[in-house]
């Protein structure tokens, strides 16, 4: 992002994202107590990914970046998702 096109993000946005993150943390804790069996880790990872997405999108200003950068970020994320997915084929069916 250039110095010229700095975006002024209203404090309200930051606060609401923060609240959403707190709520998701609460969901993680609640879900961890419920016995979801094989899905417990999967659920935890999904919630954590959504939270990381919020942080990237708003706090780290990914929202205002060029499309190329957004696409480039997808490369490691997809790699990681595939790697974790294949590992889970083992863990789930063991």
């Amino acid at each position: 992002m250039n110095e010229q096109d700095k975006h002024i993000v209203p404090t309200k946005t930051f606060v609401s994202v923060w609240i959403v993150l707190l709520m998701l943390t609460a969901v993680t804790v609640t879900v961890a107590k419920a016995d979801l069996g094989a899905f417990s880790t999967f659920t935890a990872i999904m919630i954590a990914s959504i939270k990381a997405g919020f942080v990237l999108w708003y706090f780290m200003h990914l929202k205002y970046e060029k499309r190329l950068l957004k696409l480039l970020l997808l490369v490691p994320i997809i790699t990681l998702a595939v790697i974790i997915g294949l590992t889970f084929v083992d863990v789930w069916y063991r």
Partner: peptide, 11 residues
């Protein structure tokens, strides 16, 4: 090593 059968077939 003791992986699941499904994983072994996919790999």
């Amino acid at each position: 090593s003791g992986m699941s059968d499904e994983a072994r077939m996919i790999f």
